[in-house]
Design a protein around this nucleic acid. Structure first.
Length: 121
DNA sequence: CATCGAACCAACC
DNA sequence: GGTTGGTTCGATG
């Protein structure tokens, strides 16, 4: 998808910066309905970047309320991280939205949806 | 299931 | 050039 950005004025191609990904990622996340979550890897594969970068971009999120960055977890169900107040808050938000947790800190797989499957249909 | 290690990619030093 | 993240995936016990 957005691997490279065309710099028309200088007539050359440069690598995308994290900044370039932010809008796309935030748009994608907002597609995830409350009660469900998606994974860093799911987003990463869609954009052709590493899951870690996705995490970094979430951490750079300026508007935690309008951007539901808490709806992104690790692919194994672990919460991952949350820069705004810690994973404790993250879990609380998710529970509030109806996400089911199994054995403590792990999100039930039934609540994890892959972004790809959200786009195709 | 739990742990381990290697790969991941832009940023920062 | 090396390290560092809100990770992942396969291999191994």
């Amino acid at each position: 998808m957005v691997l490279y950005v065309l710099e028309l004025e200088e007539n050359k191609v440069r690598k995308a910066r994290l900044e370039d990904y932010m809008e796309v990622i935030y748009a994608l996340i907002s597609l995830v309905e409350p009660g469900k979550v998606t994974t860093y890897g799911s987003i990463a594969k869609l954009l052709g970047i590493s899951p870690r970068l996705v995490g970094k971009i979430m951490a750079a999120n300026k508007s935690p309320i309008v951007i539901p960055c808490h709806r992104v977890v690790k692919s194994n169900g672990d919460l991952g991280g949350y820069s705004r107040g810690g994973v404790k808050i993250k879990k609380r938000l998710l529970e509030l939205e109806g996400v089911v947790f199994s054995r403590g800190e792990v999100v039930d797989k039934k609540c994890i949806i892959d972004l790809k499957e959200l786009l195709d249909p």
